[in-house]
Amino acid sequence: MRPEQQGIEVAVLVSVGRHPITGRARRADQDARGLEMALGLEHQLPGSRVSLLHAGPRSEEGEAALRGYLGMGLDTLTLLEQAEGSDAIPALAEHLAAAPPQLVITGARAERGEGSGLLPYALAERLGWPLVNGLAAVEKVENGVATLLQALPRGQRRRLKVRLPAIVSVDAAAPAARQSAFGPARRAELAATAVSAEPDRELAEWQLAPARKRPKRLKIVKAASARDRFKAAAAKAEGGSGQVLEGVSAEQGAEAILKLLNEEGVLR
């Protein structure tokens, strides 16, 4: 008989996002991908429970954005209500420590505020849980150990085994989020509880401004003679220190190429 798979508790931390062009509140892209992954896990491991958690102030605009997550097929969202500009990490850590889920999924970084991507790391440090960043998929969960697929740059993937409970963060490599349905989002419940919060004094002291376009790096030519400067300005492919094998057999040539490929470690 097939061993019965046990469901796990998954908490998804969601935030209020910001549309990159209009600047309006929306469901944050990475958080929505995290929720999509959690819902996929619920399907994969029957009996799993997904809960949504948000810490922050309650406003009309923010509520509409948070209901965007509920429209993906959940009944309730826990809102830890705080004053504007307060630190979300202590409240979240306290809430997670009180009823520890086995897996916490967050987006890699927020779309508003500091957006430093520190929250999952701060929670992992406080709770003492392992953390995996850049998750692409959860392959399986067995006996308190999860097998995960981590996304690397250049489209590569890495397989990891992590002992639960753990925190994972997702970025753009995770599966795209499903559409949010308006009716279920309206009917779902926002369960708000007020929590004590301390203001983030450091953030209040910083100067925030809309992002300036970064200066483009100029190509600075440091050449002694006019001829060198001209050559650098009219840059064409230049005879580098490359090795040229001429008049060799195909086998010798292939051997040299193979040696370089092995040195670079691109052959798998």
């Binding site: 910001r18 990159p20 600047g23 970084r109 505020g113 500091e114 910083w206 401004a209 809309p210 992002a211």
Partner: peptide, 8 residues
């Protein structure tokens, strides 16, 4: 900060 939209 804030998804490349803010300079801090």
């Amino acid at each position: 900060g804030a998804a490349e939209s803010l300079d801090i």
